[in-house]
Amino acid sequence: MARRRSEPPRRSVWKLLGSLLLTFSAVVGVIAIVAVAVCAIFGLRPVVVISGSMEPELPVGSMVFYRTVPAKDVAVGDIVTVPRSDGAAGLITHRVKQATTKDGVTTLRLKGDANATEDPLPYVVTSVGEFVGRIPLAGTIALAARTPLGIAAVATYVAALIAVIVFGRRRPQPGSRTRGRRRAVPRAAAD
């Protein structure tokens, strides 16, 4: 009597979908933890580019990272992030065109690379955010996740993840008592 070849276990659509969602979630989670750790260790802060004033160097939707340094340490040509000088809320990330320091206070003249003229008002600062790097499109994703549609998308994703975990579990067949145990395979009798 020949041995029956064991068939590979069939994976249900729920299990496959659950596996994909869990793997994706784990990868995104690890990336998020590493990003937060790197920012904390190196003192980096993220900002999102929302205008085209620094294109092509900093495209709209990029996430820019900066670290705080004394304003006296910046040089002409550096890209810096500073509070707006017109009293409005928010930050400006532009290139330094002129820097003068007097009595520990630095006055900067800034200009966006895509702008025809310098910013109209000078920036009087003691510290600035010095540009460290950028991740294209990361800012767009971060901003989208904060909108009502983005929050609904994240909630739907979490609900789908929970559904595939719950419904993807293997259910015992009625009348089956061997769940989780191996069945003995009959051996051929030796002559």
Rank of each mutant, 00 (worst) to 15 (best):
Y157H: 07
T126H: 08
A144N: 04
R171K: 14
D119F: 03
Q173N: 10
A138K: 05
D119Y: 02
G133V: 06
I151W: 08
G139Q: 04
I162N: 02
P136K: 13
V166C: 10
P136A: 11
R134C: 07
V132G: 01
V132W: 02
G150R: 02
A138M: 14
G129I: 00
R169W: 08
P120H: 03
F131P: 00
G129F: 00
P136Y: 07
L137N: 10
L143T: 10
P120I: 05
R170T: 13
E130Q: 14
L149R: 09
L149N: 11
A159W: 03
G133M: 05
R146Q: 14
A160W: 02
T156S: 15
R170K: 13
P148N: 10
A163R: 04
A159D: 03
A142C: 07
V158G: 04
A138D: 05
I165Y: 12
L121S: 13
A155F: 07
Y157R: 03
E130C: 01
P122W: 01
I135Q: 04
P148T: 09
A155P: 02
F131R: 00
P136H: 07
R169E: 05
F167L: 14
T147M: 09
G150K: 02
Y157T: 12
L149V: 15
Y123L: 02
L143P: 01
G139W: 03
R170W: 06
T117G: 09
L137D: 09
E118S: 14
L149E: 10
I135E: 02
D119L: 05
E118N: 13
S127P: 00
A153K: 06
R171G: 07
Q173H: 12
I151V: 15
V166Q: 06
Q173Y: 11
A144Q: 11
L143I: 11
V125W: 00
A159Y: 02
V164D: 00
F167Y: 12
F167T: 09
V166L: 15
V158R: 06
Y157A: 15
R169L: 14
I165E: 10
V132T: 09
T117R: 14
A153L: 15
A145I: 11
P148V: 08
A159T: 10
L149D: 06
G168Q: 00
A138N: 04
E118G: 08
V154Y: 12
L143W: 07
V128E: 00
A160L: 15
A138P: 02
E130T: 05
F131V: 02
T147K: 06
P172L: 12
P136F: 06
I151T: 12
D119M: 02
T156A: 15
L137F: 14
A160D: 01
V164N: 01
G133L: 07
S127Y: 04
T126R: 14
P172Q: 12
I151R: 14
A144S: 14
F131L: 10
E130S: 13
A159M: 07
G168Y: 00
R171H: 14
T140H: 09
V158C: 12
